[in-house]
Design a protein around this nucleic acid. Structure first.
Lengths: 115, 115
DNA sequence: AATAATGTTCGTAGTTTTGCGAACTACAAA
DNA sequence: TTTGTAGTTCGCAAAACTACGAACATTATT
């Protein structure tokens, strides 16, 4: 296969943007993770323990949810021994925000033929 | 357990809104479903066959994705024998739009203590 | 009645997610 | 050196997700 710079996402079934938006949505697809995002977005930063206190689940599970959010890019973490400080990743947050916004804006006038 | 009108969502770990937003996000958590939503939002309505043509997956799988989107409330379908017509559910679309928007708006100024 | 067109549902297989306790890591303090 | 604090990682089990082909349902046409 000859490659060139215009052939991004080759052999993929979906566009980069479709994959990326789905990835963001997936990160948000659990009430615990929504709770974490709301909590984090409302302040500058906070520690793992503070997040754990907000949730009705074991710390191992909280850690997994945080990892999922980190992997999606929506949040970031930083070790501040012996604690771990988490916060929103502003750059990716804004990207996600505009991607969701763009999708929802497609329907900017009444469109629906169904009863 | 004594019930009263102020005790909605009792014995639940998360609020109704957190669950609902997570539900919308989950519906959007797959590139095929993002593709379907973009496609549907761009027009008044279309048939199953048109949607199937846009996707690289079997019709049984397309049908499942459409069911998932329908169950979330984001789209609706209507039989128009022998075809099935799908379109965006405007009411729920607007609810989802404002719920995502509200979440992303929480971070309306620079907030992030992490490096 | 048989055939065709259009989707949905069923059964199955493999993968991923969710959740937990237990074990582990890293550092600080006694 | 032992103990404590704060999280992460591991290993497991149950449930949910993704995908497909085959079978089915429904209505129209021959």
């Amino acid at each position: 296969m000859i490659e060139n710079i215009y052939m991004e996402n080759i052999n993929k079934d979906y566009t980069i943007d479709q994959e990326r938006l789905a990835r963001f949505a997936k990160a948000m697809a659990h009430p615990a993770r929504i709770t974490i995002l709301m909590f984090l977005a409302g302040q500058d930063s906070c520690y793992f323990g503070d997040i754990h206190c907000e949730l009705p689940i074991a710390k191992a599970t909280v850690s997994q949810h945080l990892k999922e959010l980190k992997d999606s890019g929506l949040i970031q973490g930083e070790i501040e021994t012996p604690k771990v400080k988490y916060c929103i990743n502003k750059e990716n947050w804004d990207i996600a925000k505009s991607m969701f916004s763009d999708l929802f804006e497609i329907l900017n006038e009444y469109k629906c033929d169904c009863k």
